[in-house]
Design a binder for these strands. Structure first.
Length: 377
DNA sequence: TACCCGGTAAACACAC
DNA sequence: GGTGTGTTTACCGGGT
């Protein structure tokens, strides 16, 4: 596998996904100058309507998020409501970080790793003995549950599906005794990180409740996951063998070195199209970071989700940036100030981007709550 | 050594 | 009654 186009200097403080460097596309379509990165605008466009940008909207979003985070332990509804919101407040990068769960259906679990001599990053991948399938994963049950829930489309799962996810992704448990299921349930009940949601009686399929991750604890869970992964990644060369590991029962949930992830990111970043269309489908645009040398604030990842943009009509003739009509989004990225320039010279600071995103997520969360209103939690 | 955390086992109650 | 789910308690081992 050739991932040379995504490499960064080893010493660069690059954005990471579970301890690995985030691939930065070096496609020629993506140009960068000092403090500025131009990102092609995808066919999905955004609408900067007055309503979505109103201070009241922003205020309400911010207030709801702050109230959510002030709770020591969330209720189910708060959990659902806060989930999408908090995700965007404190861990925008985490959204991206966890995207590996969704971008590869066959999650490759991190098994206990035999001490092996790490290979250089670009070394060709040759088959080496893999740890036995009976090796116990290094993740705690909390992490396993967290991953399972995060990997679900609804971000909530019945315990049965959590079992299934673990079985599918960690073959160790296929042969393990049944006690681990008890441990899963024990963790769900005991840990404040997870909250229970009453199932909708109307769709009473299966026993028990649904479980979701409490947004207040999501960051902590993510941190534990990162540390676990990072710790074991540094002790293995498996991390550098995504192609090798593909389709096997072994491996690491590492996407930053994989071509899959790189392609996904590149694809997301490099779509170019006219920005006049308004689409309602949910899409994501990852305004990727500039090269690490630009700023130490490399962990910031701007995500825009379900945001519509109506291209501003520019009547006046003015001196334009050569890139302004290219269909690119320009990310001006300075340590103290970051903003986007959309086609048509519309400028968006990252706070506005975040507000737009939060607004969209808040609406989505509200919809979810309505769906669950009959649950009577 | 004490404490914390995670894993495991067991018992029990409850719902389907 | 069997099975699955949820809760609680207790114990143990490892790490700090």
């Amino acid at each position: 596998m050739a991932n040379t186009s995504h490499t960064l200097p080893p010493s660069s403080p690059c954005p990471t996904i579970f301890g690995g460097p985030l691939p930065f596309s070096s496609s020629p379509q993506q140009s960068s100058t000092k403090g500025r990165v131009s990102l092609p605008l995808s066919p999905i466009s955004f609408s900067l309507s007055p309503t979505t940008l109103s201070p009241a909207t922003a205020e309400s979003v911010h207030s709801s998020s702050s109230s959510s985070s002030s709770l020591s332990h969330c209720t189910a509804s708060q959990c659902l409501q806060g989930q999408s919101i908090s995700e965007n407040i404190s861990d925008q990068n985490d959204l991206t970080c966890l995207s590996w769960l969704h971008q590869r259906g066959n999650l490759l679990p991190l098994q206990p790793l035999a001490k092996m001599t790490p290979l250089p990053q670009q070394e060709s991948f040759t088959l080496t003995p893999l740890p036995p399938a009976s090796s116990k994963p290094p993740y705690s049950f909390s992490s396993l549950i967290f991953m399972a829930i995060e990997d679900s489309s609804e971000k909530r799962l019945p315990v049965k599906d959590i079992y299934e996810w673990i079985l599918n992704n960690f073959p160790y448990y296929r042969t393990a005794t049944g006690g681990w299921r008890n441990s899963v349930r024990h963790n769900l009940s005991l840990s404040k990180s997870f909250c229970r949601i009453q199932r909708d009686k109307s769709q009473s399929v299966g026993k028990g409740s649904l479980w979701c991750v409490c947004p207040e604890y999501r960051q902590a869970l993510l941190e534990v996951l990162r540390k676990t992964h990072s710790y074991h990644s540094t002790n293995s060369n498996l991390i550098n063998k995504p192609a090798l590991l593909e389709g096997t029962d072994y491996g690491v949930p590492e996407v930053c070195n994989s071509m899959e992830m790189s392609d996904t990111l590149s694809h997301t970043l490099l779509l170019s199209a006219p920005s006049s269309q308004i689409l309602t489908t949910k899409h994501q645009i990852f305004a990727e970071n500039p090269p690490c040398l630009l700023t130490p604030d490399h962990e910031e990842i701007v995500t825009m989700e379900s945001v519509e943009y109506q291209q501003k009509e520019v009547s006046e003739v003015m001196e334009k940036d050569p890139l302004s009509d290219s269909g690119y989004i320009e990310l001006h990225y300075y340590p103290s100030h970051q903003y986007l320039v959309l086609p048509g010279d519309t400028e968006l600071d990252l706070e506005t981007v975040e507000i737009l995103q939060l607004d969209a997520e808040a609406q989505e969360a509200a919809g979810s709550l309505l769906d669950l209103a009959g649950g009577g939690y």
